[in-house]
Design a protein around this nucleic acid. Sequence first.
DNA 1: GTCCTACGCTTACACTGTAAGTAAGTCAAG
DNA 2: CTTGACTTACTTACAGTGTAAGCGTAGGAC
Lengths: 237, 237
Amino acid sequence: MGDTTATRRGRLSRDRVLRAAVDLADRDGFDSLTMRRLGEELGVEAMSLYNHIANKSDLLDGMIDIVFGEIELPAKDPGWRTAMRRRAISARAALSRHPWAVGRMESRTTPGPATLAHHDKVLGILRAAGFSVALAAHAYSVLDSYIYGFALQAPSLPFDTGRDTGRDSVAVTQAIMARFTSGQYPHLTEMAVEHVLQPGYDYANEFEFGLDLILDGLEKASTGLSRSPRNRQHRSG
Amino acid sequence: MGDTTATRRGRLSRDRVLRAAVDLADRDGFDSLTMRRLGEELGVEAMSLYNHIANKSDLLDGMIDIVFGEIELPAKDPGWRTAMRRRAISARAALSRHPWAVGRMESRTTPGPATLAHHDKVLGILRAAGFSVALAAHAYSVLDSYIYGFALQAPSLPFDTGRDTGRDSVAVTQAIMARFTSGQYPHLTEMAVEHVLQPGYDYANEFEFGLDLILDGLEKASTGLSRSPRNRQHRSG
DNA sequence: GTCCTACGCTTACACTGTAAGTAAGTCAAG
DNA sequence: CTTGACTTACTTACAGTGTAAGCGTAGGAC
């Protein structure tokens, strides 16, 4: 009969623990991720988790590496610009699926294998396209800063009309609007009324404007050095 | 004699509490900021703090508003571009002084007065310079995303040569270098050896490259609509 | 069979945020 | 001055946190 000695319902593994942690953080918010809740989720006591992860910090590192693993790594075939664009959009989508991830990156100083592989691939594409080492560093810095910064802001904006985030963003918006009507913040009010609170508005659309702006700038910077960016260093074939 | 009934050494106030919290987070890291440690810092028991702040979340909101208050709000006199540039550099400096702040913004949904005033002023400068409402929103989004994203990445990069952060960044760098030497990440290795680990390198310098790239793009976008960006909507004088 | 190892469970501890109640100070009105 | 209201700090207490230490047992190797 009931063989539910909890050895059943499937064995634990580091991967299963990490994935359950990601799901839990996505569903109930990052603060709900406690060792006991996570154990409960897996039908196991909290301390059993420590057979597969070193401590909670290690758990977090693994979770973030999972998120990085979800970012698409396009081939360099259609050119660096397309590759960077696809990667950026995929990264934004992944970070929007796991909003807790971006804010925790600050404290992580030990990137996981997926993270490192990701960075290496991107740099490879840029270098192969003729970017100098310095320019590749610039490009990487500006692109990633933009991606992470956008992902960081997106969920915190009271402007979010709340299609995805749902919840209480309407209440929050109204609370802030109450301060607006005092006339203290005329430009914020204008922005809200004339633009952001319009029916079809979705903040996510802002992303591609800035992305293309940055890609334009990089393109100009890369062609500014040598006329054709593609055969600079890597053409000795 | 000793009249140190702890009423002495100065009365508490919300502002004193907030400022001590910021200092403590700066000095010992955000995780060291507990109510008891903060009370200790002020010569007071933990529970006394609750006479001036509602709870720890309120404390955090206040702390972040302090950081925002440190960002310089330049006048619009020398033109929007100079104003935006100064603001961005000042914001980056403030966030680098308080590295914990940027990662906590995601969870905050109730911006403080300094934060709102800041946003309103910036939007005002852009609108007065002739930016349409939509373009001002774009500009704000891309600039702030970049600023926050940069601040988010800066302390986590193992590339940091550790002038400011000091501590164990050298050890971390070496640990990662050990993986590099395995040849798994050739482009990361190249980047590190040829560029980032060079003597004079400072990641903070990357900031202005991306900033000017974005400002160039915005300038082009704003002049692309009407020849002269300044008299578009606000000239009904 | 017997032993080993892996893995989950139990108990325990130091530490967290904070609710509730108490005491000591400040200050205005009588 | 005394009196009483108010403010503010202190004390105690509690549920919930991460995790160290040790125990029990299931399943494979011999």
